[in-house]
Computed example of a mutant assay.
Amino acid sequence: MTKRKNYLSSSSGVLAIAKQPAPAKVTRYSDGDSLYLIHHPNGSLFWQMPYRYQSDKDIKPKQKTYQIGVFKSAKQDIDTAFKPEVSLKQARVERDKAKQLLADDIDPTEHKNKEKNKYEQKDLFKVVAADYISEKQDTTPKNVKKLQGFLSKHILKHIGDYPITAITAQDVIQTGLAIQNHFEKQGEWTADTTSKCVELIGSVFEYAINTLSYDIINVAYGRNNRALDVYRASAYPVNPRTHGEQSFATI
């Protein structure tokens, strides 16, 4: 693949954006060649690549968005110890990989989802979560049953078959939003249920890190109801006609 020489941004430029106050509305910054840094009103920044793809089932190409990863979560502070989850360099590599998949007539989003399933059974979130609950010694049988209910009724249908090492912050956010939407359609208030489900996902991650020695980040940290409400207020993918868009070159 031809090496690009006309990038619009730099690592220092991205860091400068991260240090800015959170915008009033979703804003995206272009690095060129379909790579965008999305800045949310809650302060988080993440990488996206919009693309068009036509599967065998589609009559015409569909506009889609490839979620590359998070640069900075809403809870992270920009200080000397800050380290992005996905750096600018890594985002460019992932963008180039996605473009190569498209050149080979492969949907990068579908490919990413399939790759998540190429792991050992013991690494699946549902297996790690079951181990976590079975080893809980500091709670009552009633609470264990409640946790099992959160998993079986609300969480596992979304990320249960994903290996815990491949689950992203976006996966957790979309799971939380799906739980909220499910109950709201029934006219039920579910802030407490959603919060406890996301909290349980975070506890499973902490168990995987501290007890099972997985070398991963707790991507559920900070994904509370307030953060979910901000994400829900802005539809994906970002529409440049209704949201701010800037080039890194202007920063």
Rank of each mutant, 00 (worst) to 15 (best):
D131G: 02
K19S: 14
A227Q: 13
K83V: 15
K64Y: 10
F150T: 01
S247R: 14
S195C: 03
D123I: 01
Y221E: 15
R226K: 11
L35D: 06
L35Y: 05
L200G: 02
K97M: 09
V172S: 10
E115I: 02
Y29G: 08
L15C: 03
T109I: 03
G69A: 12
R226N: 06
I133F: 10
A22I: 00
K146T: 12
R95H: 02
K126G: 01
Q20K: 15
L212A: 05
D229N: 14
M1V: 12
A22P: 05
H158Y: 12
Y221L: 14
P21N: 12
K196W: 05
Q76I: 03
T250F: 10
K185E: 15
E110L: 11
A208R: 02
G222W: 04
Q148G: 07
A191R: 07
N210H: 10
K75M: 07
I179Q: 04
N210A: 14
R95I: 00
R92F: 00
I78H: 10
N42T: 07
E245S: 11
K126L: 01
K83N: 08
Y214E: 06
V198C: 01
L124N: 03
F205I: 00
I59Y: 06
G176T: 00
V70R: 08
Q148P: 02
K72C: 01
Y66H: 15
S44K: 05
E184F: 02
T175A: 00
N224L: 01
Q54M: 15
I167M: 11
E245T: 13
E206N: 12
S203A: 11
K25R: 13
M1F: 09
Q246N: 12
I251N: 06
Y36N: 14
E188G: 02
Q246G: 04
N117G: 10
S34N: 09
H243S: 13
G149M: 01
Q63D: 13
A81G: 02
N224C: 03
E115R: 12
I167Q: 12
S10Q: 13
D138W: 08
S247P: 05
Y236I: 05
V86P: 06
A74P: 03
S55H: 10
V26H: 07
D161W: 01
P237R: 03
K62R: 15
L151H: 04
K99S: 08
G187L: 04
K196L: 02
N218F: 14
